[in-house]
Design a protein around this nucleic acid. Structure first.
Lengths: 195, 195
DNA sequence: CCTACCGATCGGTAGG
DNA sequence: CCTACCGATCGGTAGG
């Protein structure tokens, strides 16, 4: 069945590209590099895709969608401000631990994306950041959270969680769950009062 | 004065490359792109440099050296554990606010570097990270600091400060000094006891 | 899926 | 600093 094998090939192409783009960068990866991973010639890839750019666009678009979905689920699972922070960070960390290649590409290849996909990615990131900021602001307004700057606390929390993608490895000294719990704790420390 | 103009040209080449590599990536930047910025032909650059790779190597090597020097100065300026954390983070944040292009290149182009420079950069980063970890460990041992994980607190603190390079712009709503103070405060919160 | 090939561009060299 | 040029490689197409 040509169509089913072709669909499987498409998945294989994306998977190979995901690893190579994360490793060597978009411009550092050639179509021949991708083809070699599948044991075919570069020209054969064009039976499944339109362009190299299209592969990059698909990778970055799928990525933000799942992160925002999981974030919304985490935040709506409790009304307690402190607990929202904890769960949002646990979700944030788990997602980044699971998608190191996508994170690397998203951080390094924004300017390799053509419009309108590039702008769409930037906007999706902004929405995610705004959702965090609003969550923290609500907690501050209710007197449950405290911070010298809602905006900077947002950036600090997001960035420290993104960093997990850079060093976490399955099978290391801590499990994903342990890392998520510790970061949840660190996040709460960062935005709660001392008393 | 061929030699003095030539030295100035070299600085201009590095400066142009710094902006372009940060913007478009090492492989996304051509020698023609760099030459265009200076109003010369690509071939003329080779009167000043040996290769494109050499420019990248020089950028990444100068970078870590100044960061580690400033860190050591900050830490040795006080014996108080909490104050060490605060000053180390202020220094870390100021440095990252001032070197956004170098940070971007350092994060995205490690695998574009050839050996042995690539390994040297990784080792320099490791030394910096270890210095932070030991500083935090000392504070914990003395009973001044508290954290669920010295290692993860180290990663979290480093990464949140690195993130400043991504969004800080001179002339924005907060000055570099204000951002450094707030991050110093956030860092202390992250690793001190509640009481 | 392949071979054969396109024009464009790459980093770098020769020679002046 | 330039022009002229090198071989290699790029992403992508034609045609089977």
């Amino acid at each position: 069945m040509t169509s089913s094998t072709s669909a499987a090939r498409l998945v294989e192409i994306r998977e190979a590209a995901l690893t190579l783009f994360a490793d060597k960068g978009f411009f550092g990866t050639s179509m021949t590099d991708i083809a070699d991973k599948l044991g075919v010639k570069a020209a054969s890839l064009y039976n499944h895709i339109d362009s190299k750019q299209e592969i990059l666009a698909e990778i970055t678009q799928d990525t933000m969608r799942t992160l925002i979905e999981e974030h919304e689920k985490a935040v709506s699972s409790t009304e307690d401000s402190v607990e929202q922070i904890r769960r949002a960070m646990q979700t944030h960390v788990r997602w980044h631990a699971r998608h190191p290649r996508e994170v690397k590409i998203g951080n390094s290849e924004i300017n390799s994306l053509e419009e309108p996909v590039r702008t769409e990615l930037i906007e999706a990131r902004h929405r995610y950041s705004e959702a965090w900021k609003e969550m923290i602001q609500r907690g501050v307004d209710q007197g449950d959270l405290e911070t010298p700057s809602v905006r900077l606390a947002t950036y600090a929390l997001l960035e420290m969680g993104i960093g997990v993608a850079l060093w976490f490895r399955e099978g290391g000294s801590l499990t994903e769950t342990e890392v998520a719990y510790i970061y949840g704790d660190l996040a709460v420390r960062l935005v709660t009062k001392r008393h």
